[in-house]
Amino acid sequence: MKSTREVVDYTREVVPEASPPPAIDEGIYGWMVRLTPHVDLEKQMARDAIIHRQSLEHAIAMGDKNVIRYEECPNCSCWSLFWRYEEDQAACVNRYCTDRLGRPNLWTLGQIAEHHVAAKYAARRTAT
């Protein structure tokens, strides 16, 4: 499975001495998280973005395009994203959030996941 291979490759990249991955894919994310708590913040954020992106990919593959509605736009931070199958990207429908030609901003699942994780980590740093 492509997503499992990505998780194993990433984990082995940041933790070369990692133990073998679980034989059953169900534990692959837990394996990756357990082996990477000591890596620097940037690598932890990349790890979490992989997990989040893959969860979005799986949901959309199962027909749940509404999952994207729970993500904020990386540009305007509004809850205005809609999935566009024809582009295989999310579009922001906020009329003020457009590119330089006036078209809706489009976002890949990777960009959305990175924004989601960055916001989560920023909230952790500012929590009191």
Rank of each mutant, 00 (worst) to 15 (best):
M1K: 09
K2N: 12
K2V: 05
S3L: 14
T4R: 11
R5C: 04
R5M: 13
R5E: 10
E6C: 04
V7F: 01
Y10P: 07
R12H: 08
E13G: 04
A18R: 15
S19R: 15
P20T: 08
D25G: 13
D25K: 13
E26C: 10
E26A: 11
Y29W: 13
Y29A: 08
G30S: 04
V33M: 11
L35D: 10
T36P: 03
T36F: 00
T36Q: 06
P37M: 07
P37Q: 14
H38F: 04
V39Y: 00
D40A: 01
Q44D: 05
Q44A: 03
M45L: 09
I50L: 14
I51N: 08
R53F: 00
R53S: 04
R53E: 07
Q54E: 06
I60V: 07
A61D: 07
M62H: 03
G63S: 01
G63M: 04
D64L: 05
K65F: 00
N66V: 01
N66C: 05
P74A: 10
N75P: 02
C78P: 05
C78W: 07
W79V: 11
F82K: 15
F82E: 15
Y85D: 15
Q89Y: 02
A91F: 02
C92Q: 10
V93H: 12
R95G: 11
R95F: 03
L101N: 13
G102F: 05
G102E: 11
P104R: 07
P104S: 11
N105C: 12
L106E: 08
L109C: 02
G110E: 08
G110C: 06
A113M: 07
K120G: 13
A123Y: 01
R124W: 03
T126Q: 14
A127Q: 14
